[in-house]
Amino acid sequence: MPIARRSVLEGMLAAAASSFVPLPGRAQEATILTRPIPASGEVIPVIGLGSWITFNVGNDPVLMDECASVMAAFFTAGGRLIDCSPMYGSSQTAIGYGLAKLGMPKPLFSAEKVWTSGPDGPGQIERSRQFWGVPRFDLVQVHNLIDWQENLKTLMDMKSAGTLRYVGITTSEERRHDLLEEIMRTQPIDFVQLTYNVVDREPEQRLLPLAGDRGIAVIVNRPFQQGALTRRLRNESLPSWAAEIGVSTWAQFILKHIISHPAVTVAIPATTSVDHVRENLDAGRGVQMDAGMRARMASYVQDL
């Protein structure tokens, strides 16, 4: 990051900190469902927040504040895990800005990635940490399996040294699932991140059961296929039994299906909208689906 831009961003962080807005108290609503991280037993809410594209707003002050509002709504509704990567442009800065503006919300569960090949891993993670303004990350994942041996070693070393709590690895491509499976079988990772939703169901075959067996927490990315799925379903009607399962929109239908899988720990939809973030977190409240209902949901969408 060039000096000039870094100082622009630092200026914005200082501005954010000085305009600190405390979060409003939690509203009286059903608490959001949580799942344990098998490695520790620590529980986290089943809906998190992604930041790919949605939080990459450069140094646009209006949009930085919009991101902060989405984060505020996320924490107020009971969310904890925010996912980012050095690959996501200025999303790290936007998150740092939002966290500073909200007075570093205590519930935050920070999930970052390392995205480099070669020896720069520790340096990159440290730069990411400064962008977020956190003392250490809860989770760092090897992004898209890049240089995974070297990067996993870096993360394991950090975990042993106490500068990192959990180690993970990610992909969003089905054709990398064989390698992902091998890593899940052989490496002592705490988290795996992959794509899974009502139409991309390949992980049900091997990866999700394997995660359950090996005690690996699962983060589900691209729940809405980057918005393509919600756009496709927009003009279709929800099933008549939607109200019974407590969903009022397609986004909630999709999320409910994902988080009801017993091996899934958290789904991380990204959004630029305060209304959407609330809607998404609401999918984490109320009843959970059993296997039969999940199959019914999937076949309903398939038949559309």
């Binding site: 790919w52 594209i53 990459n56 707003v57 450069g58 646009d60 996501y88 442009g89």
Partner: peptide
Amino acid sequence: LLFSPRVYWRMFEL
């Protein structure tokens, strides 16, 4: 494509 069209065009505006 790391950014949305909205962010891209607002960049020219700013």
